[in-house]
């Protein structure tokens, strides 16, 4: 299974570099929208890597080959879900790297650093996106789910961005944040863990559905 995950990285090693470059770009582009850059970067990079991994499978019709090897279909699906987690990690590292570099060479930019809050927000959004997208792409393949894919990207990229930036507006942000914190009087850590836990649960349910779908897939 590890092999399947590594293979997905290997076929898109060019996109990995691209992803890093993209992080630099986003740090720059989103600097005026408070709190959005780290989230946008994570979502965009993960989205990109998921897309590419399926696009390469589709372009080479490699699923015919994969499913002719002694690999169970369950493992192929699991590998895709685990890859998503790995991509989140990679995106986070790439963003951290980008911000550090910018900071170190003293480029006069308003750099937004990662915070517990942004990490949990992006984790949640990416998980939600993957949980919807993977069952669809595993059922219909990359090309046929292209339309769904575009709609999904718009939904999961721009709406959260809008909310976050709205959230950052003084009055609104404070009221929402404060009321949440007051209501459950938990620490940031606890909220982060809750969000991540919930996201993982969502992925598990989605994964379970995907395995069933993929088991009946024909090539």
């Amino acid at each position: 299974m590890l092999n399947l995950i590594l293979k997905d990285l290997l076929v898109q090693k060019k996109s990995l570099l691209f992803a890093l470059g993209y992080c630099f770009f986003l740090v720059f582009a989103f600097q005026s929208m408070e709190g959005t850059a780290p989230v946008a970067a994570t979502i965009a990079v993960v989205y990109l890597l998921i897309q590419y991994s399926f696009a390469y499978d589709d372009k080479n019709k490699s699923e015919i080959m994969l499913n002719s090897l002694p690999i169970s279909r369950k493992d192929i699906v699991l590998a895709k879900y685990l890859s998503v987690l790995l991509y989140i990690g990679l995106a986070t590292v790439a963003y951290m790297f980008a911000t550090l570099v910018i900071k170190m060479i003293n480029i006069p930019l308003k750099v937004q650093f990662l915070s517990l809050q942004t990490i949990s927000i992006s984790f949640f959004i990416v998980s939600l996106m993957a949980s919807f997208y993977l069952p669809v792409v595993l059922k219909y393949g990359y090309l046929k789910s292209k339309m769904f894919n575009i709609v999904m990207f718009l939904l999961f990229f721009f709406i959260p961005m809008g909310i976050i930036s709205l959230n950052q507006k003084p009055g609104f942000s404070l009221s929402v944040n404060m009321s949440l914190k007051d209501a459950i009087s938990w620490s940031n850590w606890q909220i982060t863990l809750l969000v991540i836990g919930f996201s993982l649960l969502m992925m598990c349910v989605s994964c379970f559905i995907s395995i069933n779908i993929y088991n009946n897939r024909e090539f």
Binding site: K7, N60, K61, S62, I64, M65, S68, L69, I71, S72
Partner: peptide, 19 residues
């Protein structure tokens, strides 16, 4: 899975990753 351990396949196209 057990059977495929002992099957070798060659298709009309390669289906390996071009990249």
């Amino acid at each position: 899975k057990e059977i495929k351990q002992h099957i070798g396949f060659v298709y009309d196209e390669s289906h390996f990753y071009d990249e």
